[in-house]
Amino acid sequence: MKPAAFDYAVPATLAEAVALLAQHGGEAKAISGGQSLMPMLNFRLTSPAMLVDLRRISELHGMDIQPAGTRLGARTRWCDIEKSSALAAAQPLLCAAIAHVAHYQVRNRGTVGGSIVHADPAAEMPGLSVALDAQLRLVGAQGERMVPAAEFFTGPLSTVIESDEVLVEVLLPAWPAARRWGFQEFARRRGDYALAGAAVWYDLDSNGSIINAHIAIIGASDRPRRLPTVESVLNGRKPDAASFAAAAQATSAAVDPMTDVHASAEYRRALAGTMVERALSDAAQRAAA
């Protein structure tokens, strides 16, 4: 299908973009790479009066890798992430997971910020932002604010972002080299949205026991989220098969997936547990290798 008619602006500065969004109330929508928004427009699932193209706004571009953490400009594309060997070293879980995002052509245009704000519960980047304790910097007519990713998502395609706000950058805490991590997702076809997926990491204390476990799931809940009950099952235990099996069981108990045309709730619940178990097992094996 073809989108309904809209006006279109390409502001040169962030202030102009915010002013345009504010001026149109909820009727304007920001567009970055458009790889989530354009299908919505083509299906007429959304029909904004105006699109505000963010491509000329310099604050949204680039990535910056520092010992204290990593900044991803909201306009960072999947292909930019794929091509950065420095980022692969600084944020290995992020980079491994991004390889699962959509297809070659979409990865040349789709952006980190667009995916987070679109907030598909099965998409990788929203789940990663939660798993990695990301901070999201939003700038709007009332000024700027930092929102932890854990508080950003409120439901399917729903977030706390106001209609006059722009996601400017994603800030990721530094990643210790010894950290254990894994990412697994299952989709029917390459590049499809995950039926369920898991981004996991943990550190080890001096006794070799798990501390600081982070277990985030995608596709098996109405939003990407961490599973505190699973994390408490893991914390204090040794990273072995028995712990990971217990985590899988706790995951299936903790998630509340929907039945839809792609899979039943029961299947997704079981799959989420399997994804967590496999991701944890990858984490342990990668460390042993």
């Binding site: 458009g34 790889q35 354009m38 070659y104 979409v106 040349n108 245009r109």
Partner: peptide
């Protein structure tokens, strides 16, 4: 770079 022309607006090609 390969992109999907159905997910790109003509005005974005400017």
């Amino acid at each position: 770079e390969a992109v999907r022309a159905c997910l790109t607006l003509a005005v974005q090609a400017d």
